[in-house]
């Protein structure tokens, strides 16, 4: 028996009310949710893990044809396939986190309405399970990278500092997706239309990132806006690891880190505010 545990239930008033210890005590649930996502994905599809590859491969081919061959947008001297794929894979992780977490309340209303557990566990599990996809797809990128460097198509001067940045950038994408997703998820509880907006919103947002074009080809007067996007330095840095091209400016990158952390905390605050009573409104 655990008589020592005392819980006090009070009206929801605090601004920032997240119990880290409580989330930690639900770590088994977190792990089982990640495992569930993985198992279900395998059980429902015939091609299984091949889907991880098919999506970035097809997108890369389409992007190469349309943006490089037809529209003639430069890729800064790097092989177009590698250029697009590195952008797509990083963007996929972020947008995947965003679109899945932004649906948390509506999709789990049935469950949340009956059992209590720290709701943040669900979006957390999403962000972690998406990581598997991200790593598997990165292997594809690595293969492509070695193919081009052995061919001599890649003018590669490797900078190790970017490898150190990689885990930071992944974490940054995770908290950015989680934060933004939490904000949208909390708002869609009240305004369902936001859910529809998100669908094409993320698509449009992709064009505000240097994914289908290099930052160098952006006209100067637009450049600063593109650089405000916290995803921009992440895409550039991630691409730099695989292609060796691109320039990451320190203060722009620090701004991106700051923005990500800021959005993450705003997301947490709104999420913790909404999670306590959302079941009354949904």
């Amino acid at each position: 028996m655990n008589k020592s545990i005392t819980t006090t239930i009070k009206p929801n008033r605090g601004l920032f009310d997240i119990q880290i210890l409580e989330i930690w005590s639900y770590r088994d649930l977190l792990w089982l949710l990640i495992k569930r996502d993985f198992t279900v994905f395998y059980k429902q599809t015939i091609l299984g893990p091949f889907w991880f590859f098919i999506q970035p491969l097809l997108s890369t081919i389409v992007f190469t044809i349309i943006f490089n061959k037809v529209a003639g947008i430069s890729t800064d001297g790097t092989p177009p396939n590698l250029f697009y794929m590195s952008g797509i894979i990083a963007w996929n992780y972020f947008s995947g986190c965003l679109s899945e977490t932004s649906n948390v309340f509506n999709r789990n209303a049935g469950l949340f309405g009956k059992v209590y557990f720290p709701r943040i566990v669900v979006p957390l599990s999403i962000v972690i399970s998406k990581l598997t996809t991200f790593f598997v797809q990165s292997v594809l990128l690595l293969i492509l990278h070695f193919y081009y460097s052995s061919n001599g198509d890649l003018n590669y001067h490797f900078d190790y500092s970017y490898i150190v940045l990689l885990p930071i950038m992944i974490l940054q994408m995770a908290i950015l997706g989680l934060g933004l997703g939490s904000i949208i998820s909390s708002l869609t509880v009240k305004y369902r239309d936001l859910g529809f907006l998100l669908g094409f919103g993320t698509q449009l947002l992709m064009y505000a990132c240097p994914i289908v074009y290099p930052l160098t080809s952006v006209p100067e007067n637009y450049k600063s806006y593109i650089q405000l996007n916290p995803m921009t330095p992440i895409i550039i840095g991630f691409r730099k690891i695989f292609t060796g091209e691109g320039q990451l400016v320190l203060d722009i990158y620090l701004l991106s880190i700051f923005t990500s952390v800021f959005i993450f905390f705003i997301g947490l605050i709104i999420f913790s505010k909404v999670e306590k009573n959302f079941i009354d409104t949904i």
């Binding site: 239930i9 929801n12 049935g110 469950l111 009956k114 059992v115 079941i279």
Partner: peptide, 29 residues
């Protein structure tokens, strides 16, 4: 629902000694 913390009260407090769980609907999830 208030006791199981699915939603929070508008006023008042509840003090619970011990671990609480609810069978609001079995087979949930």
């Amino acid at each position: 629902k208030l006791l199981s913390r699915v939603t929070s009260p508008t006023n008042g407090t509840v003090i619970i000694n011990g671990k609480i769980s609810s069978l609001l609907e079995v087979g949930t999830g």
